[in-house]
Deep mutational scan, measured.
Amino acid sequence: KTYTFRVRIVDEETGEEKEIEVTAKSEEEAKKAAEELKKKYPNLKVELE
């Protein structure tokens, strides 16, 4: 079973919002993916929905 999570990304500089879908095998995995995004884009606000 896989879970699909919507991750909302807000670029703090431009105020631009993007939504991406993360497919993960567990909620834990999705959280890790969101953390990776935060590391990659430090000025983005990442929200897991």
Score class of each variant (00 low, 15 high):
3 Y>C: 08
42 P>G: 05
36 E>L: 12
15 G>N: 03
12 E>W: 08
9 I>E: 00
46 V>G: 04
22 V>R: 01
11 D>V: 04
29 E>D: 11
10 V>I: 13
11 D>K: 01
18 K>H: 14
41 Y>D: 02
14 T>Y: 01
21 E>K: 08
7 V>L: 11
25 K>E: 13
33 A>S: 05
49 E>G: 11
16 E>S: 05
47 E>H: 11
40 K>W: 07
22 V>A: 01
32 K>E: 11
47 E>A: 07
41 Y>Q: 03
34 A>H: 07
6 R>Q: 05
49 E>H: 13
13 E>H: 10
31 K>S: 07
11 D>E: 03
17 E>D: 04
6 R>H: 06
15 G>T: 01
48 L>W: 15
13 E>L: 13
11 D>H: 03
31 K>L: 14
9 I>D: 00
45 K>I: 12
34 A>R: 06
17 E>S: 13
30 A>Y: 06
26 S>I: 01
48 L>R: 04
8 R>W: 15
29 E>M: 06
15 G>L: 04
21 E>Q: 10
31 K>D: 04
37 L>Q: 02
40 K>G: 04
6 R>M: 13
35 E>H: 07
4 T>Q: 05
8 R>N: 03
32 K>Y: 11
10 V>N: 03
39 K>T: 06
34 A>V: 15
34 A>N: 02
16 E>D: 06
15 G>D: 02
31 K>T: 07
30 A>M: 08
2 T>K: 11
11 D>L: 03
7 V>A: 03
6 R>L: 13
9 I>W: 15
23 T>F: 14
49 E>P: 09
19 E>I: 15
1 K>T: 09
5 F>K: 00
12 E>I: 13
21 E>L: 15
17 E>W: 15
36 E>K: 08
24 A>C: 14
10 V>E: 02
47 E>P: 04
4 T>M: 09
28 E>F: 09
1 K>M: 09
2 T>D: 11
45 K>Y: 08
42 P>A: 05
4 T>G: 03
19 E>H: 14
26 S>W: 02
37 L>M: 07
39 K>E: 06
12 E>Q: 11
20 I>M: 07
42 P>N: 05
3 Y>S: 02
49 E>Y: 07
15 G>W: 03
10 V>A: 03
28 E>C: 10
2 T>M: 14
30 A>V: 06
26 S>C: 06
13 E>C: 14
10 V>G: 02
23 T>K: 11
1 K>V: 09
43 N>Q: 07
37 L>T: 02
35 E>G: 06
4 T>P: 05
18 K>Y: 15
29 E>W: 05
12 E>D: 08
23 T>R: 10
22 V>M: 07
38 K>V: 11
30 A>N: 01
45 K>H: 08
43 N>W: 11
17 E>A: 10
41 Y>M: 04
38 K>P: 02
49 E>T: 13
28 E>Q: 09
4 T>K: 12
21 E>N: 07
22 V>P: 00
30 A>L: 13
37 L>N: 01
3 Y>A: 02
47 E>I: 15
47 E>V: 15
27 E>A: 10
27 E>F: 15
47 E>G: 05
22 V>C: 13
2 T>R: 11
25 K>Y: 14
28 E>T: 07
10 V>K: 08
33 A>M: 15
9 I>F: 11
27 E>I: 14
35 E>C: 10
18 K>R: 14
47 E>Y: 15
17 E>G: 04
29 E>R: 02
35 E>N: 10
34 A>W: 15
9 I>V: 09
44 L>Q: 06
13 E>D: 09
17 E>P: 03
44 L>V: 07
32 K>A: 13
17 E>I: 14
15 G>M: 04
31 K>Y: 13
2 T>Q: 10
23 T>E: 11
38 K>A: 12
36 E>S: 07
27 E>T: 06
30 A>Q: 02
1 K>D: 10
12 E>H: 10
49 E>L: 15
7 V>Q: 00
23 T>S: 10
20 I>Y: 10
39 K>Y: 07
41 Y>H: 06
18 K>V: 14
26 S>Q: 01
42 P>S: 07
48 L>T: 06
35 E>F: 11
7 V>I: 15
11 D>Q: 02
18 K>Q: 12
4 T>R: 11
38 K>Y: 12
38 K>S: 10
16 E>T: 07
25 K>T: 13
46 V>C: 10
7 V>S: 00
37 L>W: 10
46 V>W: 11
18 K>D: 05
19 E>K: 06
23 T>N: 07
21 E>S: 09
14 T>C: 04
25 K>W: 12
15 G>R: 02
24 A>S: 04
17 E>M: 13
21 E>G: 03
12 E>S: 09
22 V>S: 01
39 K>I: 09
46 V>K: 03
13 E>W: 07
38 K>E: 05
6 R>P: 00
7 V>Y: 11
28 E>N: 07
48 L>M: 11
2 T>S: 10
43 N>R: 06
29 E>I: 03
20 I>T: 02
26 S>E: 02
40 K>V: 08
31 K>R: 13
33 A>W: 15
28 E>A: 10
15 G>C: 05
44 L>T: 05
30 A>E: 00
43 N>L: 08
13 E>G: 06
41 Y>I: 03
25 K>A: 14
47 E>L: 14
10 V>P: 02
